[in-house]
């Protein structure tokens, strides 16, 4: 049975009427057209569907939309408009941290949620922050490097 659900998505209020058990991932991609949120494993293991919910990273494939009532959600589409994103984009390019790009939206979300609470992370903290994100291409070292560069260049930004 459908229910009305309200939340804030990329700073704009959303009101939808749907089955509260549907996956947030499907709502974002299919109903709202936000295709930057990717589906890899569909069971919480790869991080390609990661979004920010109430300031924390969450995998949208294992979130039932009925649980995000009143929540504040940011996807890569909303985050793209920030200065922080621009810096991460440049740093990832510099480090060669993007190859096929499928994991990248999730990894950028992981980087942002790390830098927000820890603007100068050491290597271990970076690896822990991206530990839930799988990348089939880069071997991770370039991603770690990209986040390090962003942290160095972004003094005061986070």
């Amino acid at each position: 049975m459908k229910k009305e659900i309200n939340f804030v998505l990329n700073k704009k209020g959303v009101n939808i009427t749907t089955d509260p058990l549907r996956r947030l991932l499907d709502i974002l991609r299919e109903d709202l057209g936000l295709k930057g949120v990717k589906e890899g494993c569909g069971e919480g293991e790869c991080g390609s569907c990661a979004v920010i919910i109430n300031n924390r990273i969450v995998n949208s494939c294992i979130v039932a939309v009925g649980t995000v009532e009143g929540a504040e959600i940011i996807t890569i589409e909303g985050y793209r408009k920030t200065k922080q994103y621009k810096l991460l984009e440049d740093s990832f390019a510099e480090a060669g941290a993007v190859q096929c790009g499928f994991c990248t939206p999730g990894i950028i979300i992981a980087a942002e949620t790390l830098l927000r609470i820890n603007p100068e992370p050491n290597e271990n903290a970076i690896r822990d922050a991206i530990s839930g994100n799988l990348c089939r291409c880069t071997g991770y070292n370039m991603i770690v490097e990209g986040i390090k560069i962003a942290s160095q260049k972004g003094k005061g930004l986070w």
């Binding site: 058990l21 549907r22 996956r23 499907d26 299919e30 589906e39 294992i62 979130v63 039932a64 009925g66």
Partner: peptide, 28 residues
């Protein structure tokens, strides 16, 4: 949190997970 339940009830992508009974959200 649903991290066990959403994986257990999982169906094809695009479909809501399936459970034998209604669920009671308590995480909030």
């Amino acid at each position: 949190g649903g991290t066990d339940l959403m994986v257990k009830g999982r169906r094809w992508s695009g479909l809501a997970p399936h459970f034998e009974l209604p669920v009671l959200f308590i995480g909030h």
